[in-house]
Design a protein around this nucleic acid. Structure first.
Lengths: 175, 175
DNA sequence: TATTGTTATACTCTATAACTATA
DNA sequence: TATAGTTATAGAGTATAACAATA
């Protein structure tokens, strides 16, 4: 057993090199290379770091931007609709919207027809900030888009949407 | 103000329909449709649910499978290498590997050359379970792959890898 | 009885820092 | 002085259930 360990040890790792040889060694992804989830998570992780940094000057994070972008595209939507579409959940949305209201970026207007419901809107200030954040977010993807032709990027998005709708349709069928 | 709210209320939401008209209404993604992160997150979310269910019978989750797959592809790798490549962090890996060792799926072998280091290996039992989990994971992507031609799927993966490496290379340049 | 929004809770993930033993 | 692994802690994110007001 010990001999085995030592053998693989010397085979796999060159301990004669400085310590940073291990630090910079690239692992073989093995079976993970064939898993869509692995590739998606890796890419999303790198993008997430950039977006976090890009949004930091605004004092907000991705969830708040997503909420604002969806409210802008769907003025008067309810919190529950927003939660479902934004991939958030309705409980988390409460604190998030409280924050946006305190900042003066969004308002909750109780519906006069269904008093349970809040109709959500952006303020002009909220729209302005949302657009600035959108520009900042797009910049984080800029270098990536330079590595693709416009046609390729369009196809890339089409693939992502197609994959999403295949799974979403299957989930709806199961209900 | 109140007139505005009511006007948009009646414009955007048909309150005369049953309550579930709001529940099933599809929101416009708006600007989010142009954000790579949004599409990635949506797809990863749907896949994640399926993978979670597929791995449940094994009593393990994605992180454990990822670790096992990477150890299998890189026998004798260190925890720190595994953390970097798997997108985990070295602290989380400690508990994860404790669990895999208790189950008899993995072993930590202290390197005889650098006594700080653990060389990681899968046991035969661990390899068996890892392959079963891989099959289960691939099944969750099966319906998705049916919606793509082999060429399209290959291109899809190539796009994801290219995007990842563009950003990863840029990050390395910044250090 | 069901739904919207709210609150509270717990559990997971992640990030960070500090500590040890080695180098 | 730096690195591998460990431990501890706090923060964000997520999932859940219960609740009040309303339908």
């Amino acid at each position: 057993m010990k001999a085995d360990t030592d053998a693989v040890d010397s085979m796999q790792v060159d301990d004669t090199k400085p310590a940073n040889s291990a630090s910079t060694r690239k692992l073989d992804p093995g079976l993970m290379a064939h898993r869509l989830s692995f590739r998606l998570r890796g890419l999303l992780g790198l993008l997430g770091e950039r977006v976090l940094a890009a949004f930091a000057p605004f004092g907000l994070r991705s969830g708040s931007f997503t909420a604002m972008a969806l409210i802008k595209a769907n003025p008067g939507c309810s919190q529950i609709e927003l939660a479902r579409e934004g991939g958030l959940d309705k409980s988390s949305l409460v604190a998030l919207l409280n924050d946006l209201e305190e900042r003066g970026y969004a308002i909750r207007a109780r519906s006069t027809r269904d008093k349970r419901r809040s109709n959500l809107f952006l303020t002009p200030e909220g729209e302005k900030v949302m657009h600035e954040m959108f520009e900042a977010a797009m910049k984080t993807e800029a270098s990536l888009r330079e590595g693709f032709t416009p046609d390729e990027m369009q196809l890339f998005f089409a693939f992502l949407e197609r994959a999403f709708f295949i799974l979403a349709a299957e989930d709806r069928g199961k209900d």
